[in-house]
Simulated scan of single mutants.
Amino acid sequence: MPIFDTHAHYDADRFDSDRDALLSAMPGVGVGLVLDPGCDLPSSHAAAELAERYPHVYAAVGVHPEDCDGFQDEDLTELRQLLE
């Protein structure tokens, strides 16, 4: 049975040095799906980019309540575009 990593921030800086190797290796070691959630606009963009690059990675885009200071109406339009 494949593993589903339901909440991992592989877009975080701490993965900069080995992100590609780590994500590329996951299917071979039994991790079939990964959900990378965005908590603000930059991390939502990064999660969406990872989902485009790796077929087993899915992105959740949005803004975490702790990160909503400064949120503008046009930010919602940007999030909708990422959902497409």
Rank of each mutant, 00 (worst) to 15 (best):
E78Y: 14
D13C: 03
L33Q: 10
Y58F: 13
R53F: 02
L82Y: 01
L22M: 14
P42A: 02
V31C: 06
Q81V: 08
V34K: 01
E78G: 00
D13W: 06
G32K: 09
P37V: 03
H7T: 09
D16H: 10
S24Q: 11
E78M: 14
H45C: 13
D36W: 04
L23K: 13
T6W: 02
S24C: 12
D20T: 13
D18W: 11
D13E: 09
A25C: 10
H9S: 03
E78R: 12
L76V: 09
L50W: 00
D18S: 06
T77G: 01
A21F: 15
R80D: 08
L41R: 02
G30R: 10
M26V: 08
R14M: 11
G38C: 06
H56I: 06
D11I: 00
F71K: 00
L50D: 04
H9F: 08
P27Y: 08
E78P: 10
I3W: 07
H64W: 00
G70C: 03
H64V: 01
D5V: 04
G62Y: 02
Y10G: 00
T6L: 15
A51C: 06
D75T: 01
Y54N: 06
R80C: 04
T77Y: 01
D16V: 03
R53I: 03
A46V: 02
D18Y: 05
F4V: 14
M26Q: 14
G38F: 01
L23S: 14
E84K: 14
R19W: 06
L76I: 13
D75S: 09
Q81D: 15
D20A: 13
A47D: 07
F4W: 14
P27E: 04
A48N: 10
A12H: 15
Q72N: 07
C39N: 13
M26N: 09
L22H: 06
E66H: 13
D75H: 12
V61S: 00
C68A: 13
A47T: 03
T6C: 15
I3A: 11
R19E: 12
G70H: 00
L23R: 07
Y58D: 07
P2Y: 07
H9M: 05
P65N: 11
M26T: 07
R14L: 14
H45Q: 12
I3F: 15
P37G: 03
G70Y: 00
D18G: 04
P55T: 07
E84L: 13
A47K: 07
C39Y: 12
A8K: 14
H45Y: 15
A60D: 07
C68P: 00
Q72I: 00
E78L: 15
L35W: 03
R14F: 15
D18E: 11
